[in-house]
Structure formats: C-alpha cells, structure tokens
C-alpha cells in the first residue's frame, strides 16, 4: 500500500492524493514561468518586471546561460519532465512506477541546488533580483519538499 501513497488517486481507497496534484500544478506553473523566460531570452524581449530593470539585467547576464543553453530552457525541460512524471505515476508498469518518486526527487533536488546558486548570484554578484527567477526557485523548492514524503513511503514499502 505504501507504493500507492504518491499516486493521484489510490486504486484501493479512491482517495485523491493532494501532494501529487499539488506537484502537478506547481510543475505546470513552473512550465509557464520558464517558458516565458525562455521566450524573452531567445527573442531578446524585455521581461515584464514592473518598473524595475532587474529582470532584464539578470536575463541578459552571462549567468543566464550554461554552455550556451539558456538556464530558463533547462528549467523548462526540468518542469516538463516533472509534470510528465506526475502524470505517469500510477499509469506505468509497477517496477517503473516505483522509481517515479525517486526521479521527481532527483530532478527537483538539482533544481533546488541550482536555484540556490542563482539566488546567490542575484544577491551578491549581479545585484539584481529577478522576481520570475525567485518564483521559479520557490516552485522547485515546494516540489522538492512535496517529493520527500512519497519517497520515504516508497522506501519504507520496499524496506
């Protein structure tokens, strides 16, 4: 039963799993944020940032790319993968399904670490805060935290 803890709806009890739904919604929000930032970066468009220029300063900084790939695009790939994983949970063969919480944990952990690094750069190197980037950092941190109980449940079930 432990293995079904992170499924959207328990096949046994029929109860909706709010954690998985929340992760799915957060991943969707992350897709929106990162897709917008990817588009502004690639199309050289100004980022909507109220009266502030901070978002553009961060977006145009050399730190906004990794090996020539926009960081926002990496985020888009990660959020899309997370969203897909939350959809697949409970709909694939059991031996694969068991590893989905682990994959969500791994991807979101990379995201949390890199978001922390980017926030450090914004605060202490670039001296500009991009609110879109901060919202993405909060989203990925929330997904990471939500992934932990499911991971623990899966590990306990296999224990």
């Amino acid at each position: 039963m432990g293995g079904s803890i992170t499924r959207a709806t328990s096949p046994v009890t029929g109860r909706v799993n709010w954690r998985l739904w929340l992760m799915r919604l957060l991943a969707l929000a992350g897709i929106g944020v990162s897709a917008y930032l990817t588009w502004t970066h690639l199309a050289h468009q100004a980022v909507a940032c109220g009266q502030s220029q901070d978002c553009d300063i961060v977006q145009q900084s050399v730190y906004s790319e990794v090996g020539g790939i926009p960081v926002a695009l990496l985020g888009l790939v990660a959020y899309t993968a997370l969203f897909a994983l939350t959809l697949l949970r409970g709909h694939v063969a059991e031996h694969l399904d068991n590893y989905i919480p682990l994959a969500i944990f791994g991807i979101s952990f990379i995201g949390v670490l890199y978001s922390a690094y980017l926030t450090y750069l914004e605060l202490l190197v670039i001296y500009a805060i991009c609110r879109w980037c901060v919202s993405s950092a909060l989203i990925i941190t929330a997904i990471f935290l939500l992934s932990l109980p499911g991971l623990k449940a899966e590990a306990d079930a296999s224990g």
Partner: peptide, 26 residues
C-alpha cells in the same frame, strides 16, 4: 524492485554532481 536508501543516496549524489557540472559550465 522498490526504492532503497542506497538508491536515494545515489540519486542525491548524482544530483550534486550534475549541479556542480552546471556551475562549472556557468
């Protein structure tokens, strides 16, 4: 074939390595 603590540690370690690689490239 469920998840064990070893699996979690391996994935966490791999995540740290990927993060390190991204920072170096950046």
């Amino acid at each position: 074939g469920g998840i064990s603590t070893t699996h979690i540690l391996i994935v966490a370690g791999a995540a740290v390595l990927v993060f390190g690689l991204l920072v170096v490239l950046n």
